[in-house]
Design a protein around this nucleic acid. Structure first.
Length: 135
DNA sequence: GCCAACGTTGGC
DNA sequence: GCCAACGTTGGC
C-alpha cells in the first residue's frame, strides 16, 4: 500500500466533481516527475486530494481504482499517463496549508518543497496523522 | 551541452 | 497583481 497526494485547482476540477462522478480518470498530467509517480500507483493506494489556488487545503481521500494507462488526450504521443480514482471520504475538518506548515510531522512534505508538483508520494505516518487530525 | 528567454504554477 | 520556482525551448 502506497500513499499519495494529488493537487487540483477546484475551479478546473474539484473534489466535488470527483464525488459526483463516483469514479473518474485522473489525466492531463504533463510533468515527467508526476507522470512517473502515476506509474507507481497501484489499485487500492490511498490518495489525498488537495485544492490549490484559493482553497489551499486537503479536502478528501480517494483510492486508486485503475493503474496507469496511456492518457487518452495525449495528442503528442509522449507517453503521458493517467490513472482512475474513486472518492472514499470527505475530510470533516480539511487541513489547510498553514496547518501543514506548522505541524512537525508534516513540515517535511513534498507539497511544501516542490510547490509545482501535482502528484507526489506521502509517508505512511504522515497519511495516518492527517486522517487522524482531520476526522 | 550551456544558457537566456519564456511560459506555467501556485503562494502571498 | 506580483514574484519565486521550475520546466521547456531554441540559439549558439
Amino acid at each position: 500500500m502506497n500513499y499519495w497526494l494529488v493537487k487540483s485547482e477546484p475551479e478546473s476540477y474539484s473534489w466535488d466533481d470527483l464525488q459526483s462522478k463516483g469514479e473518474d480518470i485522473w489525466d492531463g498530467i504533463r510533468n515527467y516527475q508526476a507522470r512517473n509517480y502515476l506509474k507507481e500507483m497501484r489499485v487500492g493506494d490511498q490518495v489525498l486530494f488537495y485544492h490549490s489556488g484559493k482553497a489551499k487545503e486537503i479536502v478528501g481521500v480517494a483510492k486508486v481504482s485503475m493503474e496507469a494507462f496511456p492518457d487518452p488526450n495525449d495528442k503528442e504521443q509522449k507517453d503521458w499517463m493517467a490513472v482512475k480514482l474513486v472518492p472514499s471520504k470527505s475530510l470533516p475538518k480539511p487541513l489547510n496549508l498553514e496547518q501543514i506548515k506548522s505541524d512537525d510531522l508534516l513540515s517535511g512534505m513534498i507539497l511544501l518543497k516542490q510547490s509545482r508538483l501535482s502528484v507526489m508520494p506521502l509517508e505512511k505516518p504522515q497519511f495516518e496523522h492527517i486522517i487522524k487530525i482531520t476526522s
